Simulated assay, not measured.
Amino acid sequence: MLDVQTLMFREAAEAPDVIARQSAVNAALIAATAARLKTLAPHAVVTLARGSSDNAATYAKYLIETRLGILTSSAAPSVSSVYSAKANLKGTVLIGTSQSGKSPDIVTALQAAKQAGAFTVAFVNVIDSPLATEADVAIPLHAGPEKSVAATKSYLATVAGIAHLVAAWAGDSSLTNALNELPARMVQAWDLDWSKAAENLAGARDLYVIGRGVGFGAAQEAALKFKETCGLHAEAFSAAEVRHGPMALAKDGFPAFILSQDDETRAGVEDLIAALAQSGADILLAGFDDPRALVLPTVDAHPALQPILMLQSFYRMAEQLSRARGMNPDNPPLLNKVTETL
């Protein structure tokens, strides 16, 4: 078994310091970018990303639509990079997210968006990368080197950066104040014990990861990490969508891993848990107490930030689960740190 001090473990543990640094260093840039966005008053936002960064873009979609009321949609990079199709993006903002900023299709798609009239913003860790250079505004993640193939601190830095920008853009003082407390709460989240989830899933082959609203991106990210670091076939679903076709498999001990922030989506999640319990699913739950589930401890915070805190706890558990299943979380099979899709 690997030493517990894997790169994934060490890098995820750095996330609170990363976000504290990012918040301080980027304060003026975030304020200036938010002021620019208010002036532009876009009628739509387009997100651009792949992999973990695309899961962060899902978070951006829900946060922008619920806090600003601006339609937000994910771009398919191949539309411009492969099909060379052109779109009219006047009056829109494109937000690209990437740790490396080097994937050719993401860079090409951002260039095409600029030519189509979009104002482009990039959240990127490598600030001298092609994506950062091409964007109208590049917002550094300040995550530092991330050597593990599995992105952890860079993902958390991306969603925290998005939350800071949306809070400033919307003039949301409640979210801004909560963000000031986020690094300290992330330290608390890292110290929580989710080892029972690792024990429960050690022999699993398949599972659902379920979230809803601003928590759906966290569910997508957790499902991705289950696949790449633990060799588990995990599918992410909205708590609403799983009630359709996927519900047919959620029986007889099938694992359902649920992340639920304390907002308007909670009632729907509670209804889903009742249905899953009745069908015999094995429920693992973070967010609130329910006697029908294995309940994982969480840190209280602003609902929009609870998914970030849950992922901080999750990353530690996923690293433990990966090692328990005989895998190396730093070097998943068939994967590279930078995926250069065309």
Rank of each mutant, 00 (worst) to 15 (best):
A12T: 11
I19M: 12
A28R: 12
A32W: 01
T33M: 07
V45F: 15
T47D: 00
R50H: 02
T58I: 14
T58K: 10
Y62K: 02
T72P: 05
A76G: 12
P77A: 04
P77S: 00
V82N: 01
V82R: 08
Y83F: 14
K86R: 15
N88M: 09
N88P: 03
G101S: 00
P104W: 05
D105A: 00
A109P: 04
A109E: 10
Q111H: 09
Q111M: 08
Q115C: 02
F119H: 12
F119T: 10
V124G: 09
I139C: 05
A143F: 04
A143Q: 07
V166L: 06
A168D: 13
V187E: 13
W190T: 14
A202M: 10
I210C: 09
A222Y: 00
E228T: 06
T229W: 01
G231A: 03
L232I: 15
S238V: 10
K251E: 14
G268Q: 07
V269W: 02
E270R: 13
L272G: 07
L276E: 01
A277G: 15
S279Y: 04
A281N: 04
A286K: 04
V295H: 01
L296G: 09
T298Q: 13
H302Q: 04
L311M: 13
S313W: 00
F314M: 09
L321H: 05
R325P: 07
N331W: 06
L334A: 13
K337H: 01
V338R: 06
T339K: 09
